[in-house]
Design a protein around this nucleic acid. Sequence first.
DNA 1: AGCACGCCGACT
DNA 2: GTCGGCGTGCTC
Length: 592
Amino acid sequence: VLADVAFDLRLGRSFTYRVPEGLTVVPGQRVLAPLARRDRVGVIIALRDGDDASLKPLARAVEPLAVLSRAMLELARWAAEESASPLGPTVAAMLPPLLRRGRPEAVAPPPEPRPGTAAPGELWMDGDREDRLVERLEPGPALVVAPDVESAARWARRLDAARLDSGVPGAERRAAWFAAAAGRARVVVGTRSSLLVPLPPAATIALLDEHDAAHKPPGAPRLHSRDLLQRRAVIEGSALVLCSATPSVETWWRSESGGLRRLPVTRQPWPEIVTVDGRVILRTHPLTLPLTRAIEDAARRGRPAALIVMGEASALGCDECGAVMRCPACTVAFGASRTTRTLRCRLCARSEPLPATCPGCGGHRLSSVGWGGERVEASVRRRFPGLSVARLGPPGKAVGAETARTQVLIGSPALLRGQAPGTLGCVGFIVLDGLLRVPDFRGGERAFAALWAAAETVGPRGRVVVQTLHAEHHAIRAAVAQDRDTFYREELGFRRDLGYPPFRRLCSIAVRGRSDAQARAQTSDCAAALRGIQGLEVYPPSRRPGPRPVWTFVVKGPDSLPRLLAEPLSPFLEGRGSRGVVEVEMDPVSWW
DNA sequence: AGCACGCCGACT
DNA sequence: GTCGGCGTGCTC
């Protein structure tokens, strides 16, 4: 018997071994096999009859049983194809950790799903979605997929569930995996690495915060958790719940076209969302008068205030009319570079000289300066010497000592994640244009999600203050009016007009080279291999800002994009190529 | 991804 | 005269 084994290598192909006498293995089982003079862990992806004395034998099995059912292995195979990436790293990213030391524990085979009646998944957006989800999941069996470990920890506590995510020790994750396989775990909670965990029949799978970009970070498995789970639910007949107050535009679109059942929503008690034109004051100070007052009010009421700083935008905006310099062909905001004095489109690489005046209104004050967390913190401390201030880093960790009785929190939109409704007295967006200006077609979607989260977090008695130059943007207007339909209608119109997802698919291809010239050459060869293929739109390569030589380009295409790319890209993905490592990221959430 | 094999500078 | 840099290529 011969076994095809996939390893966690950036190689498209698997390797074939002889199964030695006396060793019984099955597909989906992990094995140790000799590869390049050492034993490495791989997954058996197929068994076939045959014998070839020239092949090396498998060394041994890692566990006595498969960690993946055949159905989950097939799902991983599909995920690899759908993301135009090799199977080895794709499965490797979704397996339980290896047993490090100690006695082998009781493992259970993964149940094969009985092809059940696949109901379309449900989209839960209403204000009470999380409480209802707890009720729904409590009896089990259920899998909860959270965007990050903090959220996984919170939900595991809330549901008294076993954890599969990297926030707990490996032994505990392993135990949770095999408990799920044996049907002993009522509810398991995990992140992306748990997407293939064995589940008993008629389980419920919940994806938390479906809109969160953490469900599709760069790297394996290069597929959005929502897409993998939707297919999984169909294959095994489990019930899927996508939970988000502000789903991604793709998911809303799927619910419009019947692929998902959108549960009705009720109008929630909504706070006042004030927009403030930050045109004048924001150049010297991060707090306008309305925001200053809101912070003072919150402190008086004994509630903390949160100040949200969006990712620093390198776009160029006019301080007088608020216009953002955009690529006329793509309408995404130009990236501005002061050193090279150019505007450059991150999508089509079109380049223009930095204008001296606003092409719209002739204004002379063009600025790309934004407010980063440090600058805001310093300013707030100066303005409110009597209040305790803490800045939170990306994973919600406080930068500085005081966290407990903090009166002003400063951080990214992630700061709002997991705050119980009503805990914050006010949320202020230092300048929301950072999001709307960012050269990314998802800017509107992210702004809408952040505003909605802020409104839910402060509750009806709190206040949201939005400092912006774009108070008329549909994301802001729709959030103020608590009006999802308008937001998604406008956003879908814009995406349809310009050929963005969900109407067209994108793929970003990046080449990391030894030298800039080599990366550039490899990139242009790669782009040339794709040009002329029916249905593909290949954008010109551009250098990614940063110190390392990375060149990227974007390809647009139909639903079949990964299959159209597989053939022509394979020579660039095989081996390493002397001129650079080629990385393919399907459906990127951001591509620079 | 490792890890080896293969051709050019500073040491015993 | 060797030890060793990491550039390129292979791994069932």
